Computed example of a mutant assay.
Amino acid sequence: MDTFQTLDGLYQYAGLVKDVKIQVLLYDAILKYAREHGTPVYLARALFQKYLIKRKDLARREQSYNEGKELLHYLLYLHENDQVIALYRLGLQAFSLKLYSECIEFCRKGLSKNQEVSELQASATLATCNSYLFLEDFILASVYLKEYEKFNYTYVQENAEYLRAIIYSKTEDYRKAIPLLEKCLERSKTNARIPIANDLLNIFLKMEDANAARNIFHQEVAILPAKIETPYMFDQVGLYYSLKGKFLIEQGMFDAGIECLQKSIQYYGEIGAYSEIIENTSLIIRSHVVHGKMLNLEVLQEFDSLYNVIIRKK
Rank of each mutant, 00 (worst) to 15 (best):
L261F: 09
V156H: 06
K50T: 07
G245F: 09
A273F: 10
I139W: 15
L10A: 10
I223R: 01
I216N: 02
Q12Y: 10
L261P: 03
E250K: 13
E276L: 02
R175E: 15
A165L: 01
P225N: 05
A46S: 05
A197D: 04
Y267R: 04
A124V: 07
R193T: 06
V299Q: 10
Y42H: 03
T230C: 11
K54H: 11
K150Q: 13
A212W: 00
I104Q: 08
A273P: 01
R55C: 04
I284K: 03
A124S: 11
S131K: 04
F254W: 12
Y241F: 13
P40E: 10
N159E: 12
I311S: 11
N202E: 14
L10K: 13
L111P: 06
Y274T: 03
S188A: 15
K227C: 08
E147V: 06
E149I: 09
Q83N: 00
F95E: 09
E220Y: 02
V290T: 08
I166K: 15
L31C: 00
K54N: 13
K109C: 06
I249C: 00
I284V: 02
G238N: 01
Q251K: 12
G245D: 05
S64L: 01
D82G: 00
I228V: 13
R61W: 10
N296D: 14
D173S: 08
G272V: 01
L180A: 14
P179I: 04
C107Q: 05
R193Q: 03
Y232S: 14
S169G: 13
A14F: 08
K54M: 14
D28R: 03
R187P: 00
M233H: 11
T281C: 08
N114D: 14
K56F: 09
D28H: 05
L97Y: 04
I104L: 08
R164H: 12
V24F: 09
T125Q: 00
V20E: 14
Y65S: 02
Y42Q: 02
S112H: 08
S169M: 13
L76Q: 14
Y11C: 00
G68N: 08
T3Q: 13
D82S: 07
Y100P: 01
L97N: 09
L7M: 08
V221E: 15
D28T: 03
I166F: 14
Y162K: 06
A44G: 02
F151Q: 03
I278R: 07
G110N: 05
I284N: 05
N308T: 12
